[in-house]
Design a protein around this nucleic acid. Structure first.
Length: 502
RNA sequence: GCGGUUGUGGUCUAGUGGUUAGGACGGUAGCUUCCCAAGCUACCUACCCGGGUUCGAAUCCCGGCAACCGCACCA
């Protein structure tokens, strides 16, 4: 489906819409409606269930989303989260200052003011890479973080968190004390990140406020024991940086064992498998739509020692797009915050070494995967539009209809109340005809529809007390005793695994 | 942010200086005893916002906002 078509469908069914529509909307901001919120929550629960379920030493926290200035100074965001741009007054093309100046200043432009960059351009008579004219304009300073004035005097600054990760690094010392003083220690966060994007676009893929789910695993690089043999034979659709350099464009299925033999550490490959399994097995993306895209040294952030992005091929966005990533960040983060705060952030491990733990970061973009689920799952099947959503993600797990509203409405409503009482969110619909109701639920991915009919209510009929359960994907029907319904639905929508607090 | 294209009910659209702004789908209510978007009746909902031109603007002009495509950007 094309992007506008898919967005129209999601808007029409109230899953999603632009913020402040009555004022003409605000680019890059979206509201989730009732069904969208429900799906997003299910997606977050699935994330928590899967990633925190990887170990009993992984915990979820809920940090603040405003960071004081010293934090973003230490993390590097204040200096590096800015992309100095220059534009050409003649042809209106714009470029990163770094790109334009790389010949005259190989060390980069980090930390330079816009005046200094402008002087460099003038002194070196730099020409526009596009039209060749000497019409490059002094760059305007631009930082992608939202800056806040705070405190009564307004002299101090704070920033809306540009990523959720920093809060987890800041929480590490406290978590070390709260926990059992042992590594690995995992800190999971589902939270908002805020970025003042120059050109927000493509609905949920470039937003000014969005939701990230991240697991930061702190570990001792000399001792990270994992059951690697259990995943050694798993085959991953990888596209290696070295292969891309040779011109290869399509991913190859490579076993986890082979990846380790190629030089990647076991702990990294083990988690690459877990990341893949989340998208493939939990969210249900087809393997051929997924690729694990290795970033080369020049492509990845300088603090990342190894980086694979998880990309899915989306029709609405015309190709592979990043929906998650696995970063081996080394000890960069804790070291920087140790320096920035003036307090040593280090721990003593059982053999007596004093170490700064290393960080492995597993990220999942919640909004982007919301979109990917819609893109990959929604499709036409003959006359009907169908959303093939894993049952445990469905915003409405079950809908209940009376075959004839007047004749069976009371009993159908009673069944809805019974299901809700048993903890199953059920929806009642008596509008239109039975076929129309099935179609409506197909469109939002409801896996099961239940119909109460005359036979249900007729004590003389062999089907007395049973209802029709209809499957979304196959349209097949089955008579089921009404009393078994709650258990049946609950088992269908069970999450992959349960962890604390889910 | 630059360039191009576009903006009419919830959705898709007709209308291009004077229309009761039309239709389809949808939604609501009713009729129809109805297991896959049937039919009938009634009702609901729209010219993105602000200026300008004009006797008169949904229609023309300017500005803004938003979306799509391309460029740039995406730490």
């Amino acid at each position: 489906m094309k992007i506008e078509e898919l967005y129209a469908l999601l808007r029409r069914r109230g899953l999603l819409w632009p913020t402040a529509e009555v004022y003409g909307s605000a680019a890059g901001l979206y509201d989730y409606g009732p069904l969208g919120h429900a799906l997003k929550r299910r997606l977050e629960m699935a994330w928590e269930s899967w990633f925190l379920g990887l170990s009993e030493d992984y915990y979820r926290i809920e940090p603040a989303e405003i960071l004081p200035e010293p934090v973003v100074r230490a993390s590097g965001h204040l200096a590096n989260f800015t992309d100095p741009e220059v534009s050409c007054a003649e042809c209106h093309a714009s470029f990163r200052a770094e790109t334009v100046l790389e010949k005259v200043r190989p060390v980069g432009v980090d930390g330079l003011s816009s005046e200094e960059i402008g002087r460099l351009i003038a002194d070196n008579q730099v020409r526009c890479p596009s039209c060749g004219k000497r019409a490059l304009e002094v760059p305007r300073p631009f930082n992608l973080m939202f800056e806040l004035d705070w405190g009564a005097a307004g002299k101090e600054h704070a920033y809306l968190a540009p990523e959720t990760a920093q809060a987890s690094y800041l929480a590490f010392p406290r978590m070390w004390d709260v926990g059992r003083h042992s590594l690995p220690l995992g800190i999971g966060v589902i939270g908002h990140a805020y970025r003042n994007e120059i050109a927000p676009r493509q609905v949920l893929f470039r937003m000014r406020s969005f939701t990230q789910a991240e697991l930061q695993i702190f570990f001792d690089p000399e001792h990270f024991d994992l059951p690697f043999p259990s995943v050694a034979d798993e085959r991953l659709p990888v596209l290696r940086a070295s292969d891309r350099a040779r011109g290869l464009a399509a991913p190859e299925l490579v076993s986890a064992r082979a990846l380790v033999e190629s030089g990647l550490p076991e702990f990294y490959v083990y988690h690459l498998v877990q990341e893949l399994r989340f998208f493939r097995d939990v969210l249900g993306y087809p393997t051929e739509r997924i690729r694990l895209f290795e970033k080369s040294e020049s492509e990845r952030a300088f603090y990342n020692r190894i980086q694979f992005d998880v990309e899915v091929n989306l029709e609405s966005l015309g190709g592979f797009r990043e929906v998650g990533a696995l970063h081996y960040r080394g000890d960069y983060d804790l070291r920087r915050h140790g320096e920035g705060s003036g307090k040593e952030i280090a721990v003593t491990v059982p053999d007596g070494r004093r170490i700064v733990p290393h960080v492995l970061e597993l990220t999942v973009g919640i909004d982007r995967n919301f979109w990917a689920l819609a893109d990959l799952g929604i499709g036409a099947e003959g006359e009907r539009t169908l959303w093939r959503l894993p049952a445990y993600l469905a915003p409405v797990p079950v809908a209940v209809f009376p075959l004839i509203a007047k004749a069976h409405g009371t009993e159908a409503r009673a069944l809805v109340e019974e299901l809700r009482g048993a903890g199953v969110p059920a929806l009642y619909d008596a509008g239109g005809t039975i076929g129309k109701r099935y179609a409506r639920m197909d469109e939002v991915g409801t896996p099961l529809c239940v119909t109460v009919d005359g036979e249900t209510l007729d004590p003389a009929h062999p089907h007395h007390g049973t209802v029709t359960v209809r499957e979304r994907d196959t349209k097949s029907q089955e008579r089921v005793p009404a009393g078994e319904l709650a258990a049946r639905v609950a088992s269908r929508v069970k999450l992959p695994r349960a962890v604390m607090a889910s």
